[in-house]
């Protein structure tokens, strides 16, 4: 299937990926997020903006952060939530993906938040339903809201991503987070370096706006931000790395490497962390680590995304506006 990336995607309908989006579209979402972050600080962190709308999270793969933050974002906007998780559903009786999606849509869902282990599933789902679709992670393809919240977190710390040097370290090959982040970071003006053993690099890096290194120690001191990826053991076929211990020794962020990192560098991780593999416990609590900010910002960013999809639909149809 060939996709058209010439024209930017219509982000008022679906959010399927970062690919194809313009810098202006990304910046608008980040600015909107600021407004929604303020709501989170109110004594009652809730506004009636999406009252009567239904947000369904449709997760065929496990998740803590993404699902919980989408659901709390929906509730802060007063939307109703439906939760589907593959483990406890009729999937085990052999119901197909398409039937499942149609059932959820007919319960009145206005937006489906889809996570699946197969790349392209959210795109496919969007062809089967009238609801909006948000990609919450599809296989090794994209995870756009994670990338956006990472951009927001970096922007919150530094004001802008322009000219930042960001290293993405680890299991790039299997990481949808890395893919979305490379696109988003570079779209916003950062210089991205991928750092991993050659076996964990994607088979082809054609057209990726990145530099590549196989030795973390060579480049670590030049980074303004060090983005660690989770080692995705569940997606590995055997034999990509000799052992987790050896990986941790060469690519893990430990106390020694942390000292090589510049003193105002930032440390990020999309979670969940494998402590002792890509990051050690002492590093998670280093003052330069903004991993918890990422989690907090996840809710505000996802409020902005939900509102972008659901809150402004009728703008052009309505012909009556009052002051």
């Amino acid at each position: 299937m060939s996709l058209d990336f010439e024209t930017p995607p219509d982000l008022s309908k679906h959010l399927l990926g970062i690919e194809g989006t313009t810098r202006e579209q990304l910046e608008l979402i980040l600015e909107l997020t600021d407004r929604f972050a303020e709501i989170g600080k109110r004594p009652i962190p809730k506004v009636p903006a999406l009252r009567g709308r239904t947000v369904a999270s449709v997760f065929f793969e496990d998740s803590t952060r993404t699902r919980l933050s989408f659901e709390s974002a929906a509730r802060r906007l007063s939307a109703d939530t439906l939760t589907f998780s593959a483990g406890s559903s009729s999937l085990s009786k052999g119901e197909s993906l398409r039937d499942t999606v149609e059932v959820i849509s007919s319960y009145g869902a206005d937006v489906l938040i889809v996570r699946h282990s197969m790349a392209g599933t959210p795109q496919r789902v969007s062809e089967w339903t009238n609801a909006s679709v948000i990609n919450a992670g599809d296989g090794c393809h994209e995870h756009p809201t994670q990338a956006l919240l990472d951009c927001y977190t970096l922007k919150q710390q530094r004001g802008s991503l322009d000219g930042m040097s960001i290293g993405i370290v680890g299991d790039i090959r299997h990481s949808r987070v890395a893919r979305s982040n490379v696109l988003a970071f570079s779209s916003l003006g950062a210089k991205v370096t991928l750092i991993a053993p050659q076996t964990l690099m994607p088979p082809s890096l054609n057209n990726w706006p990145v530099e590549v290194s196989n030795v973390l120690d060579d480049v670590i001191s030049d980074l303004d931000a060090c983005y660690l990826l989770r080692m995705q053991a569940e997606r590995h076929s055997k034999g990509l790395i000799p052992s987790l211990r050896e990986y941790a020794k060469d690519f893990g962020l430990n106390g020694r490497r942390c000292e090589m990192l510049s003193k105002d560098a930032l440390i990020l991780h999309p979670g969940p962390t494998n402590q002792g593999v890509e990051i050690t416990a002492e590093v998670s609590t280093d003052p330069r680590s903004i991993i918890l900010d990422q989690v907090t910002n996840g809710v505000s960013l996802r409020m902005a995304v939900l509102f972008m999809l659901l809150g402004q639909h009728e703008t052009s149809k309505q012909d009556e506006v009052q002051e």
């Binding site: 903006a49 906007l77 509102f307 402004q312 309505q318 506006v321």
Partner: peptide
């Protein structure tokens, strides 16, 4: 105060990033 998110005719007015609540 920006009341855009509390309105009953939401969708009629875009939430503009520059309108802050403080």
């Amino acid at each position: 105060l920006d009341v855009a998110l509390h309105r009953d005719d939401i969708g009629l007015r875009p939430v503009v990033p520059e309108a802050a609540t403080n």
